[in-house]
Structures are given as structure tokens and as C-alpha cells.
Design a protein around this nucleic acid. Structure first.
Length: 410
RNA sequence: GCGAUUGUAGCUCAGUUGGUUAGAGCGCCGGUUUGUGGUACCGGAGGUCGGGGGUUCGAGACCCCUCAAUCGCCCCA
């Protein structure tokens, strides 16, 4: 026995295996397929950026910057951050790589993201998202297109039934500020009846009081001012066109007047696809229009809209994706036939069949091990009077195919 | 950062009011049985009972600390 202590995995990371890994892959493969249907172009992005890429855009929510990001200094003393989201990095690339020339640009990507949070159901420190963005498109049709793709993705994953699209508008900049001011003065008037958390939020991030989980806040939230009363004519018109477009696209949704975004750069459309099947982490896909973001990175005013979806959460909803059984397991029942076994699986794999060689452990138990795996077919190699003899277990069709491949007649 | 719950074999879990040498099933390894066959039986490996301290004649069990996991709060780009 070794006295070396095994290193533990890092909190909030996950090692995904077997059926879970198959479900994960299924989500990604479905996304790739659907994204091509909607003609979103594939991009690959770095997993880390200069810290300012993320910190500049985050606005007033200092918690996020100081506590939730994985930041570190490189050898030159530069502060770098593991990406906590895709959008800011993509916006940076849009500016630094000259992608303006492709505007309006539809892009999609997926991969790991990092947030320094306490792990719980459906929340990890390294997690994985699908992401889709349309940059340089100011028209409501862009929002519709993006939502239609999200809707089709969930349908093709077979989880649309348990998931509803909640839709809201935050209006343009002026509408948003008017609403916000009204909310602040409304909640201030009831300040001492609010929960401690919400009294705190009143100073830091008042919009967030709207989705407080504390029962003490609920009655006040119910009577709070609604965005609709503060929308400019243009903002109203914009949201109307998004709703009409969704109707035309056949996307079902419900209005969620209290749905907000935590960050300042969001304008107009905000949305979340939500389920009640994942405990406290019900949002499965979320996004909105972020017309203000690219300016915070030093670019020209550039309208854009996007969403991201948690792959783990989608995979949990998809559930029971099973690993494929082998097309054929080759059982070497005598060690003397090892080379024949190796040759056989090689031929089968070259012939396009998934094949596994079973040649270890007690020879007389190998066949039973193969049976337990429930493959489509089993080929058992043994010898009879010095000749290699193979016994087949499976359908007649498979036997014909497999014997043809092994004899070079496929 | 805060709270609740849980830590016993590779996995799922038993383990009585504190009492000899800590168990089962599955999995793994080996043997026997069967021999177109997911059988049955026998045996084996594998545990400092998450870690540290304390109470006690005696702790897997009780107390304290610590670490980890799970779920929730905060936050949510």
C-alpha cells in the first residue's frame, strides 16, 4: 500500500461518465445540428481573457466581479480570468478580429465556463454551456430567430413539454431607467417590511427584488410597478414585433413581467426557458438583447442579442441516454487463440461494426461476461482438434454479415 | 460567505441502549458446476468506519474541531 495521498478533485468540478456523458454528448450533437439549420456559424473561443473583458461590462454588480470570477495573474502581472460567460469574449472578438465586416453575424459555440460559486444541484464551478449570438442586428426579427432556434433545440431534445418560455421586455435605456426609479421609490416606501436581503438589494440591485424567494417580499412584489407603464412608444413597438414574430414562428411563450437581468447592459427582450424539474436551478436556457455591451468594450454602439443554455441541466432533463451495446463481442476462450481474436476485432471494426475483445480473466467465464453485456452478437473462439472453431450467438443476419467481414467477403 | 443533512469495502447500504476479531448484496479475482451457455455453489482480495482531539475499563456509535459531499440561501453573466 502506498502512503501517497490521492489528490481530490476541485470543488465544483465534475467527472462525467457513462450514461451521463452520453446525454451530455447528445445535447451537444443536437445543438450542432440545429444551429446549422438556422445557419449560425461555428466559432471557437479562448477559455480565458484579460479580466477587464468581463469586469468592464458588468456594471454595478460588484459581487460578481469580486467574488464569482476565477481571476489570477500571469507571469507578467496581468490579471486574467477564466471565462464566466461567452458573450463578453465574443463581443471582444467582434471588435478585435474585424468581425464587424460580417454583420449581422450569427455565431454559435459551446464549452466550459467557470464561476466561483458554491456547488448545488445543476450548478458547478466548471460547467458547460451552449451559446448563440446575433451581433449587429437591431431588428426584432433577430430576437425571434434566436428564440425559434432555442425552441426547436428543446423540442428536438424532447424536453419542450416540461419547459416554458418566459418572456419580458426591459425596454430601451430610458424606459428601463424610468421603471427602475419607480421600483426604487415604491420599495423604499415599504422598506422596513421587506426581507433583510431585499433591503440590501434595494441599494445594490433593486430589480432583483422582483424575483426574491422570501415570502415576506411576495405581496409587495405582486403590487410593484410594471415595466409596461414605463415603456416608450418605440420600446412598446419593438416588443410587439417580437411577440408577433414568435406567434408566426409557432413559438409558445408566457409573459413574465418580473423577469429581469442582473446586468446593466441588457435592453428590450429578456427571456428564460424554465422548468420546475431541477430544484432551485430552474432556468435551462436564458438570454436577451444586450445593445449596451459592445460600447462598454470600446466599440461603436452595436445591437446584439444572444442566449446560453446549461448543458448539464439539459442533459439532466434528457435523462437516461444509454451507452450503445457492442455490435459484436469476440470471446477468446483459449489464450492460444489471442492473435486470432485480435485479428477478428480489427476486421470487424474496419468493416464498420463496433467490436470488443474479451480475453482476460478465467477463460471459462469469458463467455458469460460477454453475455452479460447483451451485445447484438457474440463470436466465441475455441479450438477443435487443432483447428480454430468459432461459435456464433446472435441473429442469422448478423452472423452472415460478421462471417463475411471476417472472411474478407464483405 | 451562511444554513440543513450526510460521510462504514470499488458501488449501494446494514451495524441494536457504547461491549469480543466490522458485515451483506453487487462488482472484481480464482475454483467447481453447466456446455449454444445471462445457471448454481465454494473460496479470495479489498476497510487505519472521512481526518484530528475528547469522554469511557471499552467508541463505527456519544461530545468538540476539521475536511468533504449533497441540497438550499446569497449571487446568477
Amino acid at each position: 500500500m502506498s502512503s501517497i495521498e490521492t489528490p481530490r478533485p476541485i470543488r465544483g468540478t465534475q467527472d462525467i461518465f457513462g450514461a451521463d456523458a452520453e446525454a451530455f454528448a447528445h445535447v451537444v450533437e443536437t445543438f450542432e445540428r440545429v444551429r446549422k439549420l438556422y445557419r449560425f456559424r461555428r466559432i471557437e473561443m479562448p477559455v480565458f481573457e484579460k479580466t477587464e473583458v468581463f469586469s468592464r461590462s458588468l456594471g454595478e454588480t460588484t459581487d460578481v466581479v469580486s467574488k464569482e470570477m476565477y481571476s489570477f495573474e500571469d507571469r507578467g502581472g496581468e490579471s486574467l480570468t477564466l471565462r464566466p460567460e461567452f458573450t463578453a469574449g465574443i463581443a471582444r472578438a467582434y471588435l478585435t478580429d474585424g468581425w464587424q465586416q460580417y454583420a449581422p453575424l450569427k455565431v454559435a459555440t459551446h464549452g466550459p465556463l467557470f464561476r466561483y460559486e458554491r456547488p448545488q444541484k445543476g450548478r458547478y464551478r466548471q460547467f458547460h454551456q451552449l451559446d448563440a449570438e446575433i451581433i449587429g442586428a437591431a431588428e426584432p426579427q433577430a430576437d425571434v430567430e434566436l428564440l425559434a432556434m432555442a425552441d426547436q433545440l428543446l423540442k428536438e431534445l424532447g424536453i419542450a413539454d416540461g419547459v416554458t418560455l418566459q418572456l419580458n421586455t426591459l425596454g430601451d435605456g430610458d424606459s428601463r431607467e424610468g421603471w427602475r426609479a419607480a421600483l426604487v421609490s415604491y420599495f423604499r416606501a415599504h422598506r422596513h417590511q421587506l426581507s433583510e436581503d431585499s433591503q440590501d438589494r434595494l441599494e445594490r440591485n433593486p430589480l432583483r427584488i422582483l424575483d426574491s424567494k422570501d415570502p415576506r417580499d411576495k405581496p409587495f412584489v405582486a403590487d410593484a410597478p410594471e415595466i409596461d407603464d414605463y415603456l416608450s412608444g418605440e420600446a412598446q413597438d419593438y416588443f410587439g414585433k417580437v411577440c408577433e414574430g414568435l406567434q408566426a414562428a409557432g413559438v409558445a411563450w408566457t409573459r413574465a413581467p418580473a423577469l429581469v437581468r442582473g446586468l446593466d447592459y441588457y435592453r428590450h427582450t429578456a427571456f428564460e426557458f424554465v422548468t420546475d424539474r431541477l430544484g432551485a436551478q430552474g432556468t435551462v436556457l436564458g438570454g436577451g438583447r444586450y445593445d449596451g455591451l459592445i460600447e462598454t468594450l470600446g466599440g461603436a454602439h452595436t445591437p446584439a442579442v444572444g442566449w446560453a443554455a446549461g448543458i448539464e441541466r439539459l442533459a439532466m432533463l434528457v435523462g437516461g441516454a444509454s451507452e450503445d451495446v457492442a455490435d459484436c463481442i469476440v470471446v477468446v476462450e483459449e489464450d492460444a487463440l489471442m492473435q486470432e481474436g485480435i485479428r477478428s476485432v480489427g476486421l470487424l471494426r474496419n468493416g464498420g461494426l463496433s467490436a470488443e475483445l474479451l480475453s482476460s480473466g478465467s477463460p471459462r467465464k469469458r463467455f458469460d461476461k460477454a453475455v452479460k453485456q447483451q451485445p447484438r452478437a457474440i463470436l466465441a473462439l475455441s479450438s477443435q482438434e487443432g483447428e480454430v472453431s468459432s461459435r456464433f450467438h446472435g441473429s442469422d443476419d448478423d452472423e452472415g454479415l460478421i462471417r463475411a467481414i471476417l472472411s474478407g467477403n464483405a
